[in-house]
């Protein structure tokens, strides 16, 4: 049964950047896109489980800091080797200046 979780303030993430959010033993990456939208994926790269928090956000892509694997963080699609498996994505809403994710 999924539920909405208050993850962070909308102003805590710069545009074209991400932050890490940990909850009950799971870890997520929350993104702020260049056009002001928010997105959420699993926090670990599907290649070798490196956390994406230190990665580079370029437009709608996140690049893993270890091997430069790239994903579309809106859909989770793996765009560049060595990642071959897509990231899981989660619904996001912004209410009262807070970012909520459904997990």
């Amino acid at each position: 049964m999924s539920q909405w979780i208050d993850a962070c303030g909308a102003d805590e993430i710069d545009e074209e950047d991400l932050i890490r959010f940990d909850h009950k033993g799971r870890t997520f990456a929350i993104y702020h896109s260049p056009d002001g939208e928010f997105f959420c994926t699993d926090g670990l790269c599907t290649h070798e489980q490196v956390h994406l928090e230190d990665g580079l956000v370029m437009e709608y892509e996140i690049e893993c800091p270890k091997h430069n694997a790239t994903f579309d963080y809106r859909t989770g699609e793996a765009l560049r080797a060595p990642a071959c498996v897509n990231l899981n994505t989660y619904k996001v809403k912004v209410e009262g200046g807070r970012v909520w994710i459904e997990i």
Binding site: H47, E48, K66, H67, A81, P82
Partner: peptide, 10 residues
């Protein structure tokens, strides 16, 4: 070599 170099970095 893309995969071998990924391993070199891991």
């Amino acid at each position: 070599w893309r995969w071998s170099h990924a391993r070199h970095h891991t």
